[in-house]
Every structure is written in C-alpha cells, then in structure tokens.
Design a protein around this nucleic acid. Structure first.
Length: 415
DNA sequence: TCTGGGGTCCTAGGACCC
DNA sequence: TCTGGGGTCCTAGGACCC
C-alpha cells in the first residue's frame, strides 16, 4: 500500500520583516530589513535587490540604497510565531516546531475530520493570513525532507503538494543546495565532481559520495536524494546543550576584558540551566580572534554544574589555556560559553560534593554551596523583578553593539 | 559599522578498558 | 617481549541550520 503524503512543513515568509510590515502599514511594499549591523531578516522587496539574512548592514545598503532598517519588535515575533504554531495545533497534536517561524506537522490522523492534507494546508494558510495577517508557505509530502523542500519551492506565500508518485521527478530537477545539510562547502565539493542537481547527486555512486563527504554525510545525502527519509515527527525534543556568546568588536586579549565578559555569559547560561534543573558536565569555550579564526577548548567534569561562579571560573581557565596556545593573538572579537552533557535533576538540587575532590573535575565544594545559595537568591529576585534587577554587569561587553536580550531569547531552545 | 546569536551533528585521533 | 581488536569517552575542529 502506498503511504500518503501527510507531512506538512509550514514556514512563515520573511518572518521578522513581514511582522514589521504588518505592524507599520507604511512599510508595506517597501524594501526593509530588520537589524542594523547585521541583517536579521529582509522583506521580499529587499530580497529582490539581493539583500539576505546574515548579511552585513553596510553591504545591504550598498545593494539597496533605499533600504529601510527597522528596530525589531521581538515580543511581537514571539507572540505571532506562537500563534501560527497554535493554528497547526488546532489540526493535530503531532507538531514539531523547529524554530520561531517553522514547524512540521503530521496530519495522517486527522484527515477524516478536516479533509485531505492539501485541504488542511490551505486551511492553515488561510487562517494564518486572516487571523494573524501573515503570509505562510506550506509544503506537503510523504517525508519531512521533501515537505521542507516543497515549502521552500512554494515561497513566497504558496503551497506545493508532492504526491508520492511524483516525488523523484520533482526532486531530481532541483539544485543540490536546496537539500537539508548541503551548505556552501558541500555544494562546492559536489561541484568538483560536476554534481549540481539532486538528480545528479542521486546517480552518483555511494562510494564516490562517501569519499568526498565522509561516510555519514555521504550515506545521508544519497538517502535524501532518493527520498529515503525515515525521520518521524518529534513533538518534544530536549536541548542537548545551552550556550551564550557575545561579539566584542576588537578587544585586547587580556584578563580585565575577558573575565567580566565571561561572567556575564556564564550568568546567562547558568541561570537558564538552574531554571530547568538541568546542570551540565561539559563546558566549552570559543575564542574568536580579530581575523575571525576561532578556537575552542572544553573540559568534561565529573559532576554537572549550574552555578554561575563555577561556570565562569571553568570558562576562564579554558580561555586562558586557549590564549596561551596562541600567544601571537593580541585581539579577540568574540567569546562564547556552552554547556553540554546536560542532566535532568528533579526539582531542587544542590550541587553537593559527590566524593573527595580534585579541585577541577569535582566541582562541589563548600564554596560551591555558598554560591548556590547566592545564585538562588539572584534567581528569585529576577523572577519577581526581571532580569536586570540584579546580577553581573555587562561592563566589558560593549552593550552598544550587542543585540537586545529579547532577540537572544527568541533563539533559545527549550531546555 | 566588516561579518549576530542560538543551536545540532559529524569526524578524527588519543586515552583507556576489556 | 610483542601482539590484537572492539568499544566508549574525551577533545578540537568544522559544516550546517534558523
């Protein structure tokens, strides 16, 4: 029996820019960009000039002199993104949200209530348009990968349904970089063996792909090119890591710069970990130098941590080690902290010594206990009065260039 | 105004254990 | 003294996605 195309991929078009045009009618029909130093989102009118997300603002203005930059109503992005996902949830509980503006849904179990997958997709699009005022594109197919490609092809503001008997015809004419997992590097490598369409990729021998891209990537791409994609909708997936980073401009690679910066980053990360009782064992720092080359250092502890001061100290040690290995580098342009190997502790959990300790790998000392109490106090004050009510000042972070916290929160995955 | 901030997954070598 | 293969964990780097 043929399996029907019941997977939807719904993707709000030029999301942040569309929200800005919704909120301010004078922006409609005009090339606009959300952001400033970097373009977070561009309206379709701006995209026509070649403006893209991630592009430096300066470059965007060169391409499109009449481009209007707008501030960014981050709370509205969150509200409207949530509302669009809620529309999908009105049809089926099998919804997998993958970002603020994008989700998969499997409607196999609700066609008897709402009609064919294509009809459901149109209903979703209509409701998002009439109730929220936003354009959304939807792809419908038998697999997640193909549904996602279909929604990209459907943009802007369209619907593409790929019936099971037309899958490979549809897929094989498309360029390889529409595939999930093919970015600039892989695209260039494939071009070396004269592969530029998904059809050409499909016809390339497996050993050739594996030699070019490695065993895992080679096999995965071959499978996707033949639309073999076994992935199911995953309704609740938990985060594997949590991190924070901050671009610094160009700052001297000195303690007095990186210590306060790391404390601020550690505070952001650790308070999220504490809020969900998910301490982690592995701490990774990333140091980017002036020329944009970056190095990482990590350590895996014997016991998981979520105390701000503890995380900050471990991170400082790692940064010192990274800088010591690159004595010629005098300038840093970014610092990042990530915590992985997250555990789940139920409710209140003290970071207590698990045994007798060597200072570094067994971070649960009496000092740790004191800090834990201090962290809990800070957390409690913030819960009542907001993040900025108390905490570690971000003195060295160059707040003028950093994005608002509201934007950072948009990108945070549920822990 | 040179290039944001949040993540996931893979590779490869070495340590270590059985 | 010389020899092995498999498995797991850790670390550093990199590609990719939104």
């Amino acid at each position: 029996m043929e399996i029907a195309a019941t997977i939807l991929h719904a993707d709000l078009d030029a999301f942040y820019a569309s929200v800005e045009q919704l909120l301010d009618p004078t922006l409609r029909g005009k090339p606009i960009a959300v952001g400033g130093g970097v373009v977070l989102a561009a309206s379709y009118e701006a995209k026509a000039f070649g403006v893209r997300g991630g592009m430096a603002g300066r470059r965007a203005r060169e391409l499109c002199p009449q481009l209007t930059f707008v501030g960014g109503h981050f709370e509205d992005y969150q509200r409207l993104g949530d509302a669009a996902i809620a529309v999908l949830n009105d049809f089926t509980p099998l919804v997998e949200r993958i970002s603020i503006d994008e989700a998969f849904a499997d409607v196999a179990g609700c066609t008897h209530l709402f009609g064919s997958p294509a009809e459901i997709a149109q209903a979703v699009r209509r409701r998002v348009r009439t109730e929220l005022g936003l354009p959304i594109s939807v792809g419908v197919a038998r697999t997640k990968h193909l549904a996602k490609i279909a929604s990209q092809v459907a943009k802007p503001d369209g619907l593409v349904v790929v019936e099971p008997d037309t899958e490979l015809t549809f897929l094989h004419d498309l360029p390889v970089d529409l595939m999930w997992g093919v970015g600039p590097v892989t695209k260039a490598r494939l071009a070396e063996i004269n592969v530029s369409t998904i059809g050409q990729l499909a016809k390339t021998p497996g050993w050739s792909l594996e030699k070019l891209l490695g065993p895992a990537a080679g096999e995965k791409l071959a499978d996707l090119a033949w639309n073999r994609d076994p992935r199911q909708i995953r309704t609740h997936s938990r985060a594997q890591s949590a991190g924070a980073q901050s671009a610094l401009g160009k700052k001297p690679a000195e303690e007095k710069i990186f210590r306060p910066a790391l404390l601020h980053l550690a505070d952001r990360v650790a308070s999220r970990l504490r809020a969900k009782s998910r301490p982690g064992r592995t701490v990774t720092v990333r140091v980017r130098f002036a020329d944009m080359r970056a190095v990482t250092r990590s350590i895996t502890l014997d016991a998981p941590i979520s105390a701000t001061a503890m995380l900050a100290e471990v991170a400082e040690e790692l940064v010192r080690s990274a800088l010591a290995d690159h004595p010629a580098e005098k300038t840093i342009s970014l610092l990042a902290i990530a915590v992985s190997h997250l555990e789940q502790h139920s409710g209140l959990q003290l970071e207590l010594p698990l045994g007798l300790l060597d200072e570094k790998r067994r971070p649960g000392t009496r000092k740790g206990m004191t800090r834990w109490v201090a962290d809990r106090a800070v957390d409690a004050i913030r819960e009542r009065f907001g993040w900025d009510a108390v905490g570690y000042a971000s003195v060295a972070l160059g707040t003028a260039r950093s994005l608002p916290d509201a934007f950072r929160e948009l990108a945070e995955k549920e822990l």
